[in-house]
Design a protein around this nucleic acid. Structure first.
Lengths: 242, 242
DNA sequence: ACCCTTTTTGTCACTCTAACAAAAAGCTAC
DNA sequence: GTAGCTTTTTGTTAGAGTGACAAAAAGGGT
């Protein structure tokens, strides 16, 4: 194994980003249209190769976020999702992709970045249903990202990252409903989230205008994990033995 | 950015393994003694570079598991833990390491593999306390692996991977106690794990010899997730706002 | 003023939980 | 062999947590 004549193979390292947001109560992911082969013209995740061999992985992710999506990367929640390195996933050669998951609050319009041909928010439903084909194994990566986000909603304050800095509890509920794809009882949800220590911080003496009774405003508290958690309703009960 | 003269940098890609097991009711991790520079003679995780640019990441992990630890890789639970790619983590150059987490049942003796100088089970306490220094950033990787294992014990049947194919409920309890570092009530634990559908399958009409009353035997059931989960006692309650 | 919407507070039956008691089923030693 | 020890299994019970639903509060619109 340790052969003097052998030297380790060199690999092309890429970073790809799964950027999720909420638009019109539906979960969307940011996609770009590829301008070069392979998969030219096809939808793909924003991402790219490392600039040089001194650039950190997270730094590269932030750079791509800025270049291709024109998002203020410093504000975003960014976490490593997984590394995808099947030998045949890229026809150009051995490309290993480190992927990151980012959560963005509601954003205005399909931000056209400087780098990619076109950038647009796409509903994740169209992707998981196979209706919108993606380049490489990006459909799998997105599915993994969604599942990660769904899971993190249960025991981390991730949902607040989808919201504006100041939000109401029904704003928060819409996040949970959109990401989980379920309906929740507003009354029970209202108290459940407030019962979690350090999850929500009330912003005193403020309200907001909608149609019905004005709602109290909150900001994200200092909690990093939710105790007790906000469990998903058990659609899981029906698919337990899988 | 897309400059015709620019070409992506080549990276050295490694895989490293965090292999956890239980010995004498304490959590241990498999370490090897490095035979070459850098960090020669220092303890490190088993791992190494990809053999060639056709080898898959998981395949490389399995190969290293076999070469350095002499473990039957096919039987082990193996999952991607994370990718570590700080620019300065390896003095030899830009090495990005994809790490995998493996869980092994109680194993006989420090298995000396064919590849590494020495392989030995080390208690994780000595590592997290800093008492036993490790090469590279392997201490961080191990800490992440332990936290992953602790978390997975709550909502996956991972604990059964620490046990023999057939085990008693108090065997299982010892796993939870060792990994979490807490004491659990045997009577409540007994019923709680049995109440989780598809977690444990009773092995009928069998028993085992210890000192007290013979215990029923079980095998791992088909469940992939635990509903309801087995929550950690809230040491978490005291460190919520961190 | 009345209706509509949305938010917030109440209630209640039910389940789940932690804590502890007690019984069951062997083994050991006298 | 029987008394005591250990470990496993079953019971019990008070308290917390949950989901489903009612009702009140607080505005806006007509």
């Amino acid at each position: 194994m340790t052969d003097d004549t052998w030297s380790p193979p060199h690999i092309l390292l890429a970073v790809d980003l799964v950027i999720l947001t909420l638009r019109e109560t539906h979960l969307h992911v940011l996609l770009v249209e590829r301008g070069i082969e392979p998969y030219r013209g096809c939808a793909a995740l924003p991402g790219g190769f490392l600039n040089n061999d001194r650039e950190g992985l997270l730094a590269a992710a932030h750079r791509e976020l800025d270049e291709e999506a024109d998002l203020d990367a410093t504000q975003l929640h960014l976490e490593q999702l997984g590394t995808y390195g099947d030998a045949n996933r890229d026809p150009r050669g051995r490309v290993v992709s480190v992927t990151y998951l980012a959560i963005a609050p509601r954003l205005p319009e399909p931000t056209a970045g400087t780098d990619a041909a076109r950038a647009a928010w796409r509903p994740v439903d169209a992707i998981v249903s196979g209706e919108l084909p993606l380049a490489f194994d990006h459909d799998v990566i997105i599915a993994d990202g969604i599942e990660r986000a769904r899971s993190k909603l249960e025991h981390t304050p991730l949902a607040t990252a989808f919201c504006e800095p100041v939000f109401t509890i029904s704003d928060l509920q819409q996040v949970y409903e959109a990401v989980w794809g379920v309906d929740l009882d507003p009354r029970n949800f209202y108290r459940k989230v407030q019962k979690v220590p350090n999850f929500l911080l009330p912003v005193d003496a403020e309200r907001r205008v909608t149609k019905g009774r004005p709602a109290r405003l909150f900001t994200a508290g200092p909690a990093t994990t939710l105790h007790p958690p906000i469990p998903r309703p058990d659609h899981t009960a029906s698919r337990q033995g899988e």
